[in-house]
């Protein structure tokens, strides 16, 4: 775990993390075992779970997180204008450190099912999509390319709420972990480096 992350984690625990740090933590926690363990340690050292000597029950956290996510405004409501702060306050306020714990755990356990629970109108649904909820298919600047067509053009790319965006980033990270080995099997047979693509797999499974 990098020093920066450790600092962010500690700032978060002291309720002094800014949005950038929160975002950074959320984006890293799924992939970083050390960070996860530090977070559990920090939590056991203070607040309601201090001295319990047990890791937090994941199922319980999972429920709390999905509750927290469901409480998020689905669209255009007042809170979404200051969305990052709104999310943070919501997650921080109820029972200080436990809620923080839950918000960080969201990164670990967020799943498609939890996205399902968010259940809101589908911005990709062409019949129902309203102009306000979707940006036009356009040009983007991306790694590896000059500004290019950002989309095949059949579906518009929605503007995402921060909570959804974070959830999707986590989902992308999780799926990377889940599928990278299967992908490496094919890369190893169809690109010139032999088995070397397996070096990209963080955790090789039997």
């Amino acid at each position: 775990m990098s020093e920066k992350l450790r600092e962010s984690l500690s700032a978060l625990m002291d309720d002094e993390a800014n949005e950038l740090e929160l975002e950074r933590l959320l984006s890293r926690i799924g992939a970083d075992e050390n960070l996860r363990q530090s977070w559990v340690r920090y939590n056991m050292a203070r607040g309601p779970v201090a001295g319990s000597g047990q890791a937090l029950p994941l199922a319980d956290i999972s429920r709390r997180v999905s509750d927290a996510l469901q409480d998020l405004p689905a669209d255009g409501s007042e809170q979404s204008k200051v969305p990052a702060a709104g999310l943070r306050q919501r997650l921080l306020r109820p029972v200080a450190s436990f809620a923080v714990a839950a918000s960080v755990a969201a990164a670990v356990i967020v799943s498609g099912q939890q996205l399902a629970q968010l259940g809101v109108p589908d911005a990709y649904d062409r019949d129902n999509a309203v102009a306000a909820s979707a940006s036009p298919v356009g040009m983007i600047n991306s790694l590896g390319a000059t500004p290019v067509q950002a989309s095949y053009g059949t579906q518009s790319v929605p503007v995402l709420q921060p909570a959804t965006r974070t959830a999707y980033e986590q989902l992308a990270r999780q799926r990377m972990g889940r599928y990278i080995q299967v992908h490496a099997e094919h890369a190893a047979l169809n690109s010139p480096q032999g088995l070397i693509p397996f070096a990209r797999v963080d955790e090789i499974q039997k």
């Binding site: 984006s27 990709y124 790694l143 929605p158 995402l160 965006r165 999707y168 992308a172 990377m176």
Partner: peptide, 27 residues
């Protein structure tokens, strides 16, 4: 992956070196 319930549409991207993971929820 199929889902038996609605999901909030969106996309997420992470990169590790030259490898990209792009996840998109849609219908």
């Amino acid at each position: 992956e199929n889902f038996d319930r609605e999901i909030r549409a969106g996309e997420g991207v992470v990169r590790e070196g030259g490898t990209l993971s792009y996840t998109r929820g849609m219908r």
